[in-house]
Design a protein around this nucleic acid. Structure first.
Length: 431
RNA sequence: GGGGAGAUAGCCAAGUGGCCAAAGGCAACAGACUGUAAAUCUGUCCUCUUCGGAGUUCAUAGGUUCGAAUCCUAUUCUCCCCA
């Protein structure tokens, strides 16, 4: 049962370009396609999620997806989009990254669906015994320097310089495609639009070496409506690994998407149908303040990347933090034994303070800047308080001389501090 | 190898003896408005501060001067042109 993958990508806004004949190939038969992942970090980020979703849609359309982790290519370094020569990663780091990414990928695809089960391969497996001489004779011979030089990724580096290693990258990646085509019957390589050059080097190699036919398809680079880069916030990258980006932060990232962006995101990052999405958009337009799209988006992705439990904790924490949360609600919910765990799970940083300090009363500035490290200096804390940027137990404070004492303790002996608009910390009383 | 231009805060960029902790822009952070959105407006934006100030900066190391981002010397790095 094969669905039209190309049409699917099109309405989702996930198709940037493809080689002529790709659609015919995909409607004709079950096709094996792959996408490569670069092991630059030990977790994939939301940027990689686009490629993961592409593979998932590919599989759901009835085709067989292969995720390739770049054990070999990661050793070389892709020059695409880079203005400078890359630093090598050590082999242990590379291996570690590879394993972590592999585990993450396994979460998304279906590895037990018969003929079109997903697979994960590592290109190091076919490169490790490939000697340099063999490579330049068997592969290098078929691609001219002129062809390689014409590539955008190479042209951009002509002024600043580029090592032979990075220059060779496209051949190495090109050979991946050839190898998979030859040995696994792979006919399609997909990737971000920045990969176009590398991908067609592969199709070219297949054509010249074996007169074979292979196809290429790319997805557009995702940008936010304001033109800034997708997947980054003030805290840096948004990762799929809960250790790097807590499920709460992850949920918040999607929930904070602008109206404009959420329309694109919901098409790309969820499996909802066109009808479902359009109905939701209509509803959203009626009452944008309910942020129906953002909530649906955040729910869908958080559950898929993390879990239902994580999602519920994230929502609960969000409601207390940003809902019409009053101090009474905060108090009542704090009585629950598991609430502190929810906060912790949400990635709310926690600090400790001695019971005696609180009992005697402590100046708010000392409290947030000295006894705890919520602020890095007293001056900063004072400025922030004066600007109205600090809340204690959901109440905004403005007095820098405020004394914090036992009256401020919530059930289960803690105090909730908000710094700025979205950053919460909890302070636990110990001893 | 020869000639030229340059290095200023997270980034871009002005400043060519004192009025310089250094214009302006971007980014970031906070506030107001809102919907935890976008846009807009306001404030902060080297570090610390008892908000009076104090300390450390303009590639690096020396020097001239009452006083240096600014002048001199050496060094390192970057870019451009010629061979």
């Amino acid at each position: 049962m094969i669905k039209n993958f190309i049409q699917e990508l099109k309405w989702r806004g996930m198709l940037h370009d493809c080689v002529p004949g790709t659609e015919e190939q995909l409607t004709k038969e079950m096709t094996i396609g792959y996408i490569g992942f670069d092991p630059t970090a030990d977790s994939l980020g939301v940027g990689n999620l686009v490629q993961i979703m592409t593979l998932l849609h590919f599989q759901r359309a009835g085709h067989k997806p292969i995720a390739l982790v770049g054990g070999a290519t990661g050793m070389v370094g892709d020059p695409s989009g880079k203005s400078q020569e890359r630093n090598f990663l050590s082999e242990e780091v590379l291996q570690h990254n590879l394993n972590c990414q592999k585990k993450q990928l396994e979460k998304f695809l279906d590895f037990e669906s018969g003929v079109n089960s997903a697979e994960i391969v590592n290109n190091y497996d076919w490169f490790k015994n490939f000697t340099f001489l063999e490579f330049i004779r068997d592969v290098g011979k078929h691609i001219t320097i002129n062809y390689m030089m014409a590539k955008d990724s190479v042209q951009k580096r002509m002024d600043t310089g580029m090592s032979f290693t990075e220059f060779s990258y496209q051949l190495v990646q090109g050979y991946d495609f050839y190898y998979l085509w030859k040995h696994k019957g792979v006919k399609l390589q997909m990737g971000g639009s920045d990969q176009w050059g590398n991908i067609v080097t592969g199709t070219e190699l297949i054509r010249r070496k074996d007169s074979g036919d292979a196809f290429a398809l790319t997805t557009p680079l995702i940008k936010k409506a304001d033109g800034t880069k997708f997947g980054k916030t003030e805290g840096g990258n948004i990762w799929l690994d809960a250790k790097r980006t807590s499920p709460y932060q992850f949920y918040q990232f999607w929930l904070n998407a602008s109206d404009e962006d959420s329309k694109n995101y919901i098409r790309i990052f969820t499996l909802m149908t066109q009808a479902e999405i359009e109905a939701m958009e209509a509803e959203h337009a009626k009452a944008p303040n309910f942020r129906i799209l953002q909530k649906a988006l955040a729910k869908d992705i958080t559950i898929r990347v993390h879990s239902e439990t994580d999602y519920n904790a994230a929502v609960e924490a969000s409601e207390i933090f940003f809902g019409k949360g009053t101090i009474e609600q905060l108090k009542s919910v704090s009585q629950r034994g598991d609430f502190l765990d929810i906060l912790r799970e949400a990635g709310v940083p926690s600090f400790q303070i001695g019971a005696l300090d609180i009992k005697n009363g402590i100046n708010i500035v000392d409290f947030v800047a000295e006894k705890t490290k919520i602020f890095s200096s007293k001056g900063e804390a004072r400025k922030m308080i004066q600007a109205g940027g600090v809340s204690i137990n959901l109440n905004k404070i403005s007095d820098v001389n405020l004394i914090v004492n036992n009256d401020y303790l919530l059930p289960n002996s803690y105090i909730l501090i908000r710094k700025g608009k979205k950053e919460y910390s909890m302070v636990n009383v110990v001893g």
